[in-house]
Every structure is written in structure tokens, then in C-alpha cells.
């Protein structure tokens, strides 16, 4: 009996009731890139080819990453669903599991479960302008959405990306964003709170960038991810631009253990971030106690 889980994407010969949703799939680390002193980008490939093909996700979803002997941690997927066969995880060395992952080498095997949760409404966003706002490590899940939009660029109107980091050396994916600043199909603005001598871009909190952009409120979807303290201020700026509450999407980070709505750790108000989120629209979030 095949007792390996496949999360939401169970199909074919394996009836859903016989899979163990807690059992991770083995996955091989196929690339590691240093992004900053604290963050690395890992490319992972599921070893089982059926599982690899069946792994179907949407931007904003997450996986549970296992290093046996250390534990499991929820990590949002940074690569685009349009890229098949692998996923990328942007991981900060912030705890035991992420620390153990940072000590892994290319070729090493880790465990993966997922994808889990509700991502961004990509199909619904099509045909509209998109305003994406990230703070710090919050760029990790938004990167998936950004790259997915990039791969289907003709389906979207104006695409604006505002990204704030604390310091220049904490700007993630800078190798890509430096180039994108010169593209005319993406309006990308980076800002840092604490500039150094090399920084030539914007300075200050990400909310300052709202003065520099035009938003068509009838036609724009927003997506926000960043540290908890950021949401209130960015949402206020979007509301000032008259964007609809149910077209502003936020992604929440909460403690998660199981990823499948059972262990109870990720409760946010009356919902669970792991199955009801982590992406909520602002109307939903307004109705969630303790959310923002």
C-alpha cells in the first residue's frame, strides 16, 4: 500500500484516504544560492517522479520542510507554478530546522510535504493591474506571484512592485531586481531604511513609495506580504488610493506544525492560516480577530 501523502493533489490510483499526510516525500537539493548573509535560495526536486509531476501549486502556497532529527518548518514557495519539476524556497536561518537546512549541501536529501494552504487568486487577478508590496522576507511568497505574472505577462495590465528592506545587503533577489528596474513592463521600486554608501535607490519605509505611483482603483488587485507590523500601514495607503477591500490580498505568517488544519498552532481569529490562508483578502482579514 502506498502510504505516501500528496496533499491536495492526490490523484490516480492512490485513494486519498490511504495516504499519510504527515509523511514527507524525499526531495533532493539541486541548487543553493546565497542571497544575503541570512538567506539562501534552495532549489528542490522531489525524487519520486510521479510525485514531482503531480506537485501542482499556486503562488502563495507553502510546503512543510523536514530535516529528520531536527524537525519540520513551514516555508512559502518562491518559484512560479509555471515552472514545473522543481520548487525554490527562500529561507532565512532563523531556527533549528532552517539552520539545519542552511548547513545542507547540494545533493543532500530533505523531506517535503505539500503544497498547502490557499494562495493568491491568480486567475481572478488576470485582466487587471496588479500592485505588489513586500517588506523584508515577505518577498519570498510574492516572488512566486511575480514570476508567475512574468510568465503570463500579456494577461495582466500594469504591474507595480514595491519592495522595502532594512539595509541594501538585505535586499533579496537583487540580482534579478536590479535588472528589472530597467524593464518597461514592470514598474519596480526598491527602498531601504538604512542606506549605505553604495545605495543609490529610494530611502525610507515602503509606504513612502505610494506617493510615486498611480493606481486605477477600479481595476487593481493588491498583494501584500511582510512583517506583521507592516500590513496596517500598507493597507491604509492602498485604501487611500481607493482600492476595494476585497481586492487587497495579504499573506500571513503564523506558527504552523501540521499544515493541514489539525495541530491548531496557526489560529488567526476564527480561522487557521494553514488551510483558510495563508492568503486572505482584506475584507476577510478585517473580520479576523488578531489578524492585523
Amino acid at each position: 500500500m502506498d502510504t505516501i501523502m500528496r496533499g491536495t493533489h492526490v490523484s490516480g490510483a492512490v485513494p486519498e484516504s490511504t495516504v499519510n499526510p504527515y509523511r514527507p516525500w524525499p526531495a533532493r537539493i539541486t541548487s543553493i544560492m546565497d542571497l544575503t548573509p541570512q538567506e539562501k535560495l534552495f532549489e528542490l526536486r522531489l525524487i519520486d517522479s510521479d510525485a514531482r509531476e503531480a506537485f501542482d501549486f499556486s503562488a502563495g502556497q507553502f510546503v512543510e520542510l523536514s530535516v529528520f532529527g531536527v524537525g519540520e518548518a513551514p516555508i512559502s514557495i518562491s518559484s512560479a507554478p509555471s515552472k514545473q519539476g522543481f520548487i525554490e524556497l527562500c529561507v532565512r536561518n532563523a531556527g533549528d530546522v532552517t539552520g539545519a537546512l542552511h548547513r545542507k549541501q547540494c545533493g543532500d536529501i530533505v523531506g517535503l510535504r505539500g503544497p498547502f494552504g490557499r494562495g493568491f487568486p491568480f486567475e481572478e487577478m488576470k485582466g487587471h493591474d496588479v500592485l505588489l508590496v513586500a517588506g523584508g522576507l515577505g518577498i519570498a511568497p510574492l516572488k512566486s506571484l511575480i514570476n508567475h505574472i512574468h510568465d503570463d505577462r500579456h494577461d495582466f495590465g500594469k504591474v507595480t512592485i514595491l519592495y522595502g528592506a532594512k539595509k541594501p545587503d538585505e535586499v533579496l533577489f537583487r540580482y534579478q531586481f536590479d535588472m528589472w528596474q530597467h524593464r518597461d513592463d514592470f514598474d519596480l521600486m526598491l527602498t531601504v531604511d538604512q542606506p549605505d554608501d553604495t545605495w543609490e535607490g529610494e530611502v525610507g519605509l515602503v509606504t513612502r513609495l505610494f506617493d510615486k505611483i498611480d493606481v486605477d482603483p477600479e481595476n487593481t488587485y493588491g498583494a501584500i506580504c511582510g512583517p506583521p507590523v507592516m500590513y496596517k500601514y500598507v493597507i491604509a495607503e492602498m485604501r487611500k488610493k481607493a482600492m476595494d477591500v476585497d481586492r487587497i490580498y495579504v499573506s500571513f505568517e503564523r506558527r504552523m506544525k501540521c499544515g493541514i488544519g489539525k495541530c491548531g498552532h496557526c489560529g488567526v481569529g476564527h480561522q487557521y492560516a494553514c488551510v483558510d490562508g495563508p492568503v486572505f483578502n482584506y475584507w476577510e482579514a478585517m473580520n479576523l480577530q488578531e489578524a492585523i
Binding site: V70, G95, D96, G99
Partner: peptide, 9 residues
């Protein structure tokens, strides 16, 4: 001891 040997917190 296991945590010490693995370098965990």
C-alpha cells in the same frame, strides 16, 4: 546531548 551534537538551540 543530541541537540548539542547537532548544533541545535
Amino acid at each position: 546531548l543530541s541537540r548539542v551534537l547537532q548544533g541545535l538551540s
